[in-house]
Amino acid sequence: MKNVWITLRTSAILFVLCCVLYQLAITGIAKVAMPHQAAGSLVYNSNHDVIGSELIGQSFTDPHYFQGRVSSIEYNANGSGSPNYAPSNPDLSKRIEESVAAWQKQNPDVPVSSLPVDLVTNSGSGLDPDITPQAAAAQIPRISQLTGLKADQLQSLVQENTTSAQLGIFGEPAVNVLKLNLAVQQLRAQS
């Protein structure tokens, strides 16, 4: 019984330290020192409305836009996850065949052999904001044809929105699809 009483009293004060002070103090520091990150790296338009987060992918079904990865949750950022297909699951092969067929329909000029694997696989979170630089390059002919923008203009936009691995060795080069599409939209508005 003595242990129960000590547990409750010790826990109460450790709770104040670990839950109340720790979390509230750091929330305060973050709000003052790093407001952008603390709020979720949000992206605003010229009217100061939130149009998304740099870190969270969006659904781009319109072929005029660069498209992101397969997402079984359709980029609903109120949840997250993947269908958890095992490598041997026949549903995985079926879904990939469907993605390949859809690709061929939208991009008749680009052969399947230059279709990068990230475009036909589901990300772990279902919210992957990025595609590989190869996946962006493979979509340039389609977007150029549909929007009338020149391929080398698009190529330089892709390059501007590509980040290399952090410090050169941590992670992989990636193209942020939302930022890239914002740049495409801007260019289309200008021309």
Binding site: S82, N122, G171
Partner: peptide, 10 residues
Amino acid sequence: TGSMEGKEVR
């Protein structure tokens, strides 16, 4: 790039 199902590009 290896097996990308269930993985993140970055």
